[in-house]
Simulated assay, not measured.
Amino acid sequence: MRRTKEDAQQTRESLLDAAERLFAERGVSRTSLQDIAKAAGVTRGAVYWHFEDKTELFNAMMSRTTLPMEDTLKSIDTEREAQPLVELKASMMDVMQRIAHDPRTQRVFDIATLKVEYIDELSGIRERHLNVHGSCQSHVEATFRRAQALGHIRPDLNLHVLAVTYMALVNGLIHNWMLDQSRYDLVAAADAGLDVFLSGLR
């Protein structure tokens, strides 16, 4: 029984690996489940045994890479953290480091930002994207609220607007770098840019 479970897990990982590779090469809409099954060396039936459709497979591929980063942000204790802005920047710099230096993370972000169309069968991907973005923005806003309560952020600032702007800065840095990685050093630009943003809140 244990071997059967191990085989099933190995097949699932092979499908996710194949999907990641093909999505990066062809784009999501131009890659079929049959293409993924063939690349993974399994039948189309094996794909449906693990995933209901391409949206579920795509979301599983994304989660495999992005969940650790989302968990890092969510680990900030917005009730007790003594230096919430320091922790917030550290968590975002961890994301930037992974994108800049980890091939899998870079590939997945490339797919998510440049290789997917939110149409027809892929509309569920847009929903996941919005849910993840909304969750991250909520945690950022909660971190800002903690910082404001500690006197680290001016009391007159609108925390929701700050969170929206902060996420726009982070997403913009990543997206523009993915378009042309020669334009700037992602880690260095994020380090300087986030410092400027956060220092302006005090």
Rank of each mutant, 00 (worst) to 15 (best):
M1E: 02
T4N: 09
E6C: 01
A8Q: 09
Q9F: 03
Q9P: 00
S14N: 14
L16G: 05
L16Y: 02
A18K: 05
E20W: 06
R21E: 08
L22G: 12
L22Y: 05
A24P: 01
E25W: 00
S29Y: 01
T31G: 02
S32A: 14
L33P: 00
I36D: 03
A37I: 09
A40G: 03
G45K: 10
V47S: 02
V47M: 01
Y48E: 03
Y48C: 06
Y48I: 13
H50N: 09
H50W: 03
F51I: 06
E52W: 00
E56D: 08
N59W: 01
M61W: 04
S63P: 00
S63M: 02
T65V: 15
T72M: 13
T72V: 13
K74W: 15
D77K: 10
T78S: 14
T78I: 15
R80P: 07
R80G: 14
P84H: 03
V86K: 14
K89V: 02
S91N: 02
S91E: 01
M92P: 00
M92I: 15
M93N: 08
M93S: 08
V95K: 09
M96E: 00
R98I: 04
I99R: 07
I99S: 01
H101Q: 13
R104L: 11
Q106A: 07
R107C: 07
V108M: 11
A112Q: 05
L114D: 07
V116M: 09
E117S: 06
I119P: 00
I119G: 02
G124P: 07
R126V: 07
R126S: 11
R128D: 02
H129P: 01
N131G: 11
H133D: 08
H139L: 12
A142Y: 12
R145Y: 10
R145F: 10
A147L: 10
A149N: 11
R154E: 09
P155Q: 09
V161Q: 13
V164R: 15
V164I: 14
V164N: 13
T165R: 14
T165D: 06
L169R: 14
L169C: 06
V170T: 06
N171Q: 10
I174G: 09
I174Q: 13
H175N: 08
N176E: 15
W177D: 07
W177M: 12
W177K: 12
M178K: 15
M178I: 15
L179M: 13
D180P: 04
R183V: 06
Y184Q: 12
L186Y: 10
V187H: 06
A189V: 04
D195T: 14
V196H: 03
F197W: 02
F197H: 02
L198D: 00
L198G: 04
L198C: 05
S199F: 04
